[in-house]
Structure formats: structure tokens, C-alpha cells
Amino acid sequence: MQKFVGTGVALITPFKEDLSVDFDALVKLVNFNIDNGINYLVINGTTAESATISKEEKLRIIALIIKTNAGRVPLVLGIGGNNTLEVKKEIQATDLSNIDGILSVVPYYSKPTQEGFYQHFKALAEVSDVPIILYNVPGRTAKNMSAVTTIRLANDFPNIVGIKEAGNNMQQYLELLKNKPTDFLVISGDDDLALGITLAGGAGVISVIGQAYPKEFSTLINCGLEGKNKEGYAIHFKMMAIIDAIFEENNPAGIKTVLQELGFGINQVRLPLVKASKELHQKIANFVNTF
């Protein structure tokens, strides 16, 4: 699964002022990321505001990114939810012929037991023809999937190839790295921990900030993969302030503000999310203008 090693980016969905999808800005963003060294793209993940994007919009977004990518980098599609039967149906109904993997979030709101997490992903693994990357993000789902459950899934299902771990919990990362099967990928979902996790044996990152600074963040992760800690942390220290800033209020309002300052559309989001505050926007603009 070398195609998922390195820097993946969780693409935003750009919107116009009327909240329709800005497909032109999306094309520009995809090309910018590929041209500047990212290794793969994640489509319709949570950073893409997938909860507020219609089925028809999702299909158009997928088709456009496939066309724009033109086979240059692997593509990962977000398909997840807390209704296991419906997630299974979506996987079975989706044309995955141009998709290299699925990123599937831990069921949210329902707060399953660890056995519930296992049975949910078991059901998905049994119907998926493409590799699955688990996505553990307890800050959003309200419950943590333990390292023990993840390793159990990794051992039992060959098509569960990795996890995007985003609990900001270094101990859990290390437990995963210590006990995982050899080829199982531990991917950082925390931009602020990505370098350290990669240096410890992780497979890289699925990043938010990376789509705004793909060249810099890809270089940082490559330093991690090559064991160049001093060079990697030199970049990390330069980016610490902006990584903190984009998550200060909500995601993706922060990253969309960075991208607006860089010329990739505007920072419009759909309710219940709201734009970055004037104070945060100014902080981000100051960083962008001096980086």
C-alpha cells in the first residue's frame, strides 16, 4: 500500500457566495496540490463538509476530481456514517473503478462499544472491493476506537490497510505503531503531530494544512520518512502558528480562509458552520503575507 504513504490532503469543497460548489476553484486547488508534490488526494471527507453536500454534488465532485487528476496520484474517497447498512449500500452502489481506497470514519453519535466498532468495519470490509483506511477522530465522533480494536481489524481483514488516527493522543499512536501488522499503515490525522508520528514509524499524514502549503508540508513528511528530524522540525516550527490557527474556531473555516488569502476561492462555508471571525481572519492573513 505504498500509494498511501507520504502526504495525503483532505480536500475542502470550495463554495461561491451563493453557497453553490465552486468547481473552478476546486480544479485549481487539485492541480496546485499535485503540481507541488502531494502523494494522494482525499475526496468528500469531513474537511470537505460532506455532511452538508448533496448526493448529486458529491457525484459531480468525484467526477471532476477524477478528470482533473487524470491518473496522476491515487484517490481516496470518504464513505462513512453511523448507519452500517446504508454505508454498505453506498460502497456497493458507488463506481470505484477510478478510486484507490475508501476512508471510512468511525460511527459517530451512536457511541458503539468496541465490539460495535469491530462489527461495523467487518461489515464494510466484506463488501468493499478497494482498500479501506479507518478514520478514528474521537473529538468529532464522541467515542474513541481503541488501538486494540484497530489492530484486531487489521489482523482479521487484509483489505483494511491503515488508519487515519486523529485523537491527538501520542500514547495511542505509539501503541498502534508497536503492535500493528508489518504492512498496516498508521497515518497521522493530526497536522501538529504528523512529523513526530512519521519519524516514529508512521506512514505520513492526511493533512488539512497541506493543501495550502503542499510543497512545504510534503517536504516535512518526506523528512520524517527519511529520518531527517532536524530538517523536518525546522519546517514544522515555521508552520506551528498556522496549524494552530486553522483549528482555532472550526474546520474547514480556518483552512478556507488560508486558501482565500492564497487565491483559491473564498472562505464560504455552509451552516451550521460559519466563516472565520474577523480576528482569526486577520491572524491568518498576517501569517500568509509573511510566510
Rank of each mutant, 00 (worst) to 15 (best):
Y108I: 05
K238T: 06
E165A: 04
L134P: 06
P252Q: 03
M1Q: 11
K122Q: 04
D18H: 12
T113C: 03
I243L: 07
G78M: 13
D24A: 04
T68C: 13
G139S: 12
T149I: 05
K55Y: 10
T47W: 03
D18S: 06
A25H: 04
N36H: 14
V127M: 00
I62C: 08
L174T: 01
R140W: 00
A63N: 14
Q211W: 07
Q171A: 09
G78P: 13
Y40V: 09
Y40T: 11
K111L: 13
P112K: 12
Y213D: 04
G167D: 01
I151T: 08
V258G: 05
N44M: 15
I151E: 11
Q260R: 10
E57Q: 14
T68Y: 11
P158M: 05
D100I: 08
N169F: 01
L29H: 10
A25D: 09
F291T: 06
R60E: 10
E115I: 05
I160A: 01
V42I: 14
F247Y: 11
G189T: 07
P214T: 03
D244H: 09
N155R: 14
V208L: 13
A285C: 10
T141M: 10
K238F: 05
L177P: 08
F247H: 08
V21C: 03
I12M: 10
N44D: 07
I43L: 15
L259V: 00
L29K: 08
I151R: 13
N289G: 11
A154K: 09
I38G: 12
D244Q: 14
P131V: 07
T52Y: 15
I132Q: 11
I235K: 08
A245E: 07
V42P: 08
I209Y: 07
I163P: 06
G45H: 12
L195A: 04
V186M: 10
N69D: 02
I266H: 09
V208G: 09
R152L: 01
Y173F: 15
G167T: 05
Y118L: 06
L124D: 00
G227F: 04
K215G: 02
L96D: 02
T52W: 09
T68V: 12
I221M: 12
V205G: 02
D35S: 15
L220D: 02
G37S: 10
L195T: 02
Q119C: 00
E248F: 09
P252Y: 05
F117Y: 08
A194T: 00
Y213E: 07
A123F: 11
K58P: 04
A203D: 06
S128L: 07
K143R: 08
N289L: 15
E279F: 12
T290K: 13
D22W: 02
D156Q: 06
L59H: 09
D156F: 05
A93M: 13
V21A: 04
N222H: 13
L29N: 04
I284S: 01
S277T: 14
C223G: 00
N136L: 11
S128F: 05
N82L: 12
L259E: 06
K275C: 10
D129T: 15
K89Q: 13
A285L: 09
A147G: 06
E57W: 02
